[in-house]
């Protein structure tokens, strides 16, 4: 049976059944409530238009998530078009300067994190992690999320967004990870050393 034979109410039922999980999926990737809701709306509208192509053998949720994924990438591409990534080289320069001496050796203490994995079960840790992610520059964060959430390679990220080179992607990822590390150390591990 194809979905095109179902009544419009079915799509509303999908909203009840899958709306929240699609929203969370989008929010985890765009980190903006309004944008996430808009993308979920675009997904349902697109789903109505594309009902004919939906085969019942695939799961509705998987199908909707697939549409949403495209919407997210489109959104990121749209935003990225208005930005440039030329400033990757100076990203978090201050942090690097205070971390290393002139010869490139550490001049700060990289603290030992005790039992870091225990933090994964703590709600407070996730509040900190979300705050650290929110503090990253938005356009750079998108690169990090594409890498970590969608598993895109540097080459694929270059194709999806107007970043000039894979080397630039690697530089950005390296700086973001350094910043996240510092944020977690300051906000979590230095405050709760027992994890």
């Amino acid at each position: 049976m194809r979905v095109m034979t179902e009544s419009p109410e079915s799509v509303e039922q999908w909203l009840e059944l899958y709306g929240d999980s699609l929203f969370k999926f989008a929010l985890a990737r765009v980190r903006n409530v309004q944008v996430a809701e808009d993308l979920v709306q675009e997904t349902f509208v697109a789903a109505i238009k594309a009902r004919d192509s939906f085969e019942q053998r695939s799961q509705v949720k998987t199908w909707l998530t697939g549409i949403l994924k495209h919407k997210i990438i489109d959104h990121q591409r749209r935003c990225a078009r208005e930005q440039n990534y030329e400033d990757a080289d100076t990203l978090f320069d201050e942090l690097r300067q205070e971390s290393f001496d002139a010869s490139g050796h550490w001049q700060i203490d990289v603290a030992q994190w005790s039992n870091p994995d225990q933090a994964l079960e703590r709600e407070e840790f996730w509040a900190v992690m979300n705050r650290c992610l929110d503090e990253l520059p938005e356009k750079m964060r998108e690169i990090f999320l594409l890498r970590e959430m969608e598993g895109l390679s540097a080459e694929e990220i270059c194709k999806a967004l107007p970043v000039s080179s894979t080397n630039n992607v690697w530089v950005i990822l390296s700086r973001l990870r350094m910043k996240l590390r510092q944020c977690l150390e300051l906000r979590w591990f230095n405050r709760a050393p027992d994890g």
């Binding site: 419009p8 709306g19 999980s21 969370k24 985890a28 409530v33 709306q41 349902f44 509208v45 979300n130």
Partner: peptide, 25 residues
């Protein structure tokens, strides 16, 4: 999808989407 305390769509967001679904249908 550890996005903090937000478990789902807001009431307004859901209503807006429902309206969009009806219009499109």
């Amino acid at each position: 999808e550890e996005v903090g305390k937000r478990e789902g769509l807001s009431r307004d967001g859901r209503a807006k989407i429902r309206e969009a679904i009806r219009r499109e249908s």
